[in-house]
Amino acid sequence: MRRYIVRRLIHMVITLFAMMTIMFFMFRLLPGDPTMTMISSVMYPKAQEAMRAQFGLDKPLIEQYLIYLKNYSTLNFGYSFHSSREVSELLSGRIVNTLVLILPSMIVAYGLGALLGALLGWYRGGRFETSVVFVATALQAAPVFWLGMLAILLFSINLGWFPPGHLVTPGMFPDQDLRMYVSADFLHHLALPFLVHTAYQICFPLLLMRSSMLATIGEDFVEFARIKGLRERKILFGHAARNSLLPVATTIPMILSWALAGSVVIETVFSWPGLGKLMIEGVQRSDFPVVQAAFFLIAVLTIIGTFTADLLYGLLDPRIVYD
């Protein structure tokens, strides 16, 4: 087990390294000089030179790459082109905002989705099952931004139950300290994006769990549990659902990555100042260091999420041997 963890950590570092390398060269190979917004050709050539030197752009590419690796590995992401503030300072709050929206939502989606899917599979064959499957399939096919807009239209604009966006009521927490995250105002703002995201993300684990249950129910060990005279509830949760969980759990890393990368959409719709929103802002302002750092952080979160989910899976299935 320890050897496995060490090996996985090494893999993670390699993945991260590869990702950083690709990112570095990709941004430089793409058309459009990322420094264009800062260094314009109407400036004096001397001034242009000075700025290039300041950003280290006068150095050979390979040296730039090494400096980039060194800076990133010490979490030094440089300065924003746009605001001239340190990128790490811009990012720190944003990570929390993204995580506080996406993680609880994914946990609820998988927890509740698996539970509902298990019950649907167990009490199969009713009209209730048919309608839930229909709704979940439709919801899953709908784009998140559209769901978000519908929700805002209905619950914010028409009914006025929830604010249509932002973390908190503007001006309420000028220092943005941690107390903000436990305030009622924050939860009130969190509710709608959380509900939309959860409603969207719950469909996949729900449908998968249901079909997994349908397959498991036919297994001999489920029949045997009944022969043993176990109570129905125990057969359902202790055997049928327990084993049906395995294929559902394998999808967590993949879906979690998508959710983190896709946070761009939900954050934009709800003006939620997370990493995804930061990335969009960065792209719009050609704020290259910010985009690159946000990109990097999303990748890091994804890799950590995948790793954790893998370890959890090992707890679920004892047949998996770590060596």
Partner: peptide, 28 residues
């Protein structure tokens, strides 16, 4: 009690053998 035809598949693959016996005892 019953010894089923496919005793090999009658055991739940993700539970300890002892736990599966314990579970039968404690159900009754």
């Amino acid at each position: 009690s019953m010894i089923t035809q496919s005793a090999l598949n009658a055991l739940n693959p993700v539970k300890k053998v002892g736990d599966q016996i314990v579970e039968a005892i404690r159900a009754h």
